[in-house]
C-alpha cells in the first residue's frame, strides 16, 4: 500500500501544471512542424516556426508594417472610445430610469448577439472604404456589451447608498458621479474587456473585407499572395496586440479612484 501511495505521489509530482504547460506548448509546436513536413498539405502551406519567426523579423524591421499597425490601432482605439462612451451613457439611462429600461433594454438585449459584420455594407456606403467604416463597426460592436453591463450593474447598486445620496440632497449628476460610477467598477471592467475584444474583431474583420490599410488588410494581402509565413506573422502580431490590450484594461480597472473609496 505504501509503495502504491509512493508511486501515486511521484506521478503527481511528475505532472505538475508548469511541466504540463511546457509539454503542451512543445507538443503543439511539434505537431505543427510534423504536419508541415508530412506532405499531407501543399508545400509552404504550413511553414516552419523558424520561417514564421523570420517573417516576423521582416515585418518588425519594415516601416510600412508600422503604418498598417498605426491604422489598425487608431481604428480600434477610436471605435472603442466611441462605443464605450455611448454604451456607458445608454447603460446609465436604461439602468437609472426603470420605465426607459423596460421599453428599450429588450432592443439592446436581443440586438447584442446579432452578427454586427452584416452592417458593414451599410457602413461602407455611409462612411466609405477608409477608416470611418471600420471605426463605425468597432464602435457598434463595443456599444452593446458596455450598455448591457452598465444597465445591469446600475440595478444592483445598493438602495441604501442611493438613500444616503438623497439624504445629502445630491443632484442627479452628483449621484451618478459619486454613487453609481464607483459602485459600477466591476460591470465597467467586464464591459471594457468584452467591448475591447469585440471592437478588435469588428475593426479587423471589416479590414479583411474591404480596406486600403491596416493589419487585417495586410493579412488578407499576404494570404492572396500565398505568403503564408508572413500572413501567420501578422495574425500572431494581432493576437499579441489583443492580449496586450486586455492586459492594459485589466490593469486600468484595478486602479481604485478616490470616489470608489468614498462610496465604500
Amino acid at each position: 500500500m505504501a509503495s502504491v501511495e509512493y508511486v501515486g505521489a511521484r506521478r503527481t509530482a511528475l505532472w505538475t501544471p508548469g511541466r504540463l504547460r511546457i509539454a503542451g506548448a512543445v507538443a503543439l509546436l511539434a505537431l505543427w512542424e510534423a504536419a508541415g513536413l508530412s506532405g499531407l498539405f501543399f508545400r509552404d502551406l504550413l511553414p516552419s516556426t523558424w520561417r514564421i519567426l523570420q517573417a516576423m523579423g521582416d515585418l518588425l524591421t519594415s516601416r510600412e508594417f508600422y503604418t498598417h499597425v498605426g491604422v489598425t490601432v487608431a481604428e480600434i482605439l477610436i471605435a472603442f472610445a466611441i462605443g464605450t462612451v455611448l454604451g456607458t451613457a445608454a447603460g446609465l439611462i436604461l439602468g437609472i430610469s426603470r420605465r426607459t429600461g423596460d421599453i428599450f433594454e429588450p432592443f439592446i438585449h436581443y440586438l447584442a448577439p446579432t452578427p454586427k459584420i452584416v452592417f458593414l455594407p451599410i457602413l461602407l456606403v455611409l462612411f466609405g472604404v477608409g477608416m470611418g467604416s471600420k471605426i463605425a463597426l468597432g464602435a457598434i460592436s463595443s456599444f452593446f456589451p458596455m450598455a448591457l453591463n452598465i444597465a445591469a450593474g446600475v440595478r444592483q447598486v445598493s438602495p441604501v447608498l442611493l438613500r444616503v445620496g438623497r439624504t445629502f440632497s445630491l443632484s442627479r449628476w452628483q449621484t451618478i458621479r459619486m454613487i453609481y460610477l464607483p459602485a459600477l467598477v466591476p460591470p465597467i471592467a467586464s464591459g471594457l474587456r468584452i467591448g475591447l475584444g469585440v471592437s478588435i474583431v469588428g475593426c479587423l474583420l471589416s479590414e479583411y473585407k474591404l480596406a486600403r490599410a491596416g493589419l487585417g488588410f495586410l493579412a488578407g494581402q499576404y494570404g492572396d499572395q500565398f505568403a503564408i509565413a508572413h500572413m501567420l506573422a501578422v495574425l500572431i502580431f494581432i493576437f499579441v496586440l489583443a492580449v496586450l490590450g486586455n492586459a492594459v484594461i485589466e490593469r486600468l480597472v484595478r486602479l481604485p479612484g478616490p470616489d470608489t473609496r468614498r462610496a465604500k
Partner: peptide
C-alpha cells in the same frame, strides 16, 4: 476570449 474568428485566412488557405 481570444478573437479566434480572425484566424480565418489561415483556414481559408488550408
Amino acid at each position: 476570449s481570444a478573437p479566434l474568428v480572425l484566424l480565418y485566412p489561415l483556414f481559408l488557405v488550408i
